[in-house]
Computed example of a mutant assay.
Amino acid sequence: MSVSIDIAGLRPERVTVVPSPLAELGMALHALAEPGHHPELQGWVTSVTSRLDSHLADRMCEADFLWRTTFSDLFLPFAGIPGRGTLPGATLPGATLADDLDLLDQLTDEQFVDAAMEFTCTLNYDVQAPDLLADADARRRALEVAASRGPQQVRFAQRLLDDPPSVRAWLRRFLEDCDEAFFDEAWSRLRHQLTADARHKTELLRHKGLAEALAAVSPIVTVDESAGRILVDKLVQGRTTTAGGGLLLLPTSFGRPHLTVLHRYGWQPLLQYPVGSPEPASAPSVEQLALRMTALSHPVRMRICRHLARSAHTTSELARIHGMTAPEISRHLGVLKKAGLVITRRRGRYVMHQLDVSVVARLGSDFLEGILR
């Protein structure tokens, strides 16, 4: 499985490597919400949470599904705005967080709502989706999925669909307060590293070409020159194109081990890739390795793990996502649970399943990075 980016006719000057303050803030929020995904950031997470204002901490919980269970494209708004100026077909991130937030304000209400509702696990990410603000059936389905996530998501989804401007204003104020509380300090330290990496990748692009630059981004990103496409080896299937636009490459420090591929319909393609070196992984026991590798030997179970690593899902949701029956999914979940890889909890009338990331981390960093990227 992979995400394919059609680059036929893509001119070299339309490939840009540049850091984004807003994208990095989104990854910082994700690291705070899911420290198990980022063990190397444990010290920073502890430092920030220990001095965080209680009111801001409460506000973080109001919509943490925008960065905890999935990385919302709201943190990449420039990809949804048609290009202008000297780089047709591409809009670049801002130099400051305020600049990026101004770009977020330029998204239409339809774009904003569509990106914000990504936590409903829409199946239409890389095809044209119905307008949630105008399509009653799509709105009802989105609220039904939000209900399975709990009352917090229902309240947010209902408010978003009823009054997008108020949610947009709330989000901007929240991100500005996060910047003041902890991110500005982190960004002043990290931006030099990210800028240096962007400069290095730009030199590779200029002197050695796209294939060499992408190989330096990650070994899972390759260029099929005969087919005119980029292939990103991920446990997800998707397609997008640079036709009429460009390709953005965004370095991230907080984001490791995630390699994000934006392939939303109508938005320009984007790769957000980690910089720096990962921490060495601890080895699992032989007994755990044998049992868990057997459980993970099936490709469907690997894809199930990818979804359960990001968010808890019901059996019926997984069946819909994978195009299988509920009994078939239940059998795969049974194997994963027997191996101690999946935790099951009841939430009201819903039975939710989620991957135990700490167990997977002990199994091995290669598999963990594979399902999280």
Rank of each mutant, 00 (worst) to 15 (best):
Q268V: 12
R11N: 13
L22F: 09
G244N: 07
R159A: 01
L341Q: 06
R229I: 05
G9S: 09
L29R: 14
P12M: 12
L101G: 10
G340I: 08
Q111D: 11
D135Q: 00
L231G: 08
G43I: 10
G246V: 10
A129L: 06
L250I: 14
V236E: 13
R191C: 02
A309P: 05
R331N: 11
L76P: 02
A33Y: 08
L123F: 09
R206F: 13
R173A: 11
H322P: 08
V3F: 09
P299E: 03
H353D: 00
T325C: 11
L248E: 01
G348S: 06
P35L: 04
E62K: 05
I329M: 13
Q42S: 11
D131I: 01
M293N: 15
R349N: 05
I220C: 10
W67R: 09
A283Y: 15
A115I: 14
L74G: 01
W170S: 08
D102E: 08
G245K: 14
T122P: 02
P299D: 07
I230W: 07
A312N: 00
S218P: 02
S285D: 02
M60C: 13
D366Y: 08
L10G: 07
T314P: 12
A142V: 00
L363D: 13
R310K: 10
H207Y: 03
A196I: 13
E24P: 12
P284R: 02
P164Y: 01
R310N: 15
L92Q: 02
S253I: 09
S253R: 09
C178W: 13
H332D: 14
R264D: 04
L97T: 12
Q158T: 04
F78H: 12
L41V: 15
R191W: 06
S253Y: 15
V221L: 05
R256C: 12
R59F: 08
I5K: 15
V300N: 01
H55G: 12
G150L: 08
F367S: 01
C61S: 14
D58C: 12
D179G: 04
G209H: 02
R59S: 08
M293Q: 14
I5A: 13
S226R: 15
E13F: 02
C178N: 06
A216V: 10
D163H: 07
V275A: 00
G89W: 07
L296Y: 00
N124P: 09
D162S: 05
V357H: 03
A129S: 07
A295N: 02
A181P: 01
T315I: 03
D131V: 01
R68E: 04
A283S: 12
F65I: 00
L97S: 06
P165G: 03
L66G: 10
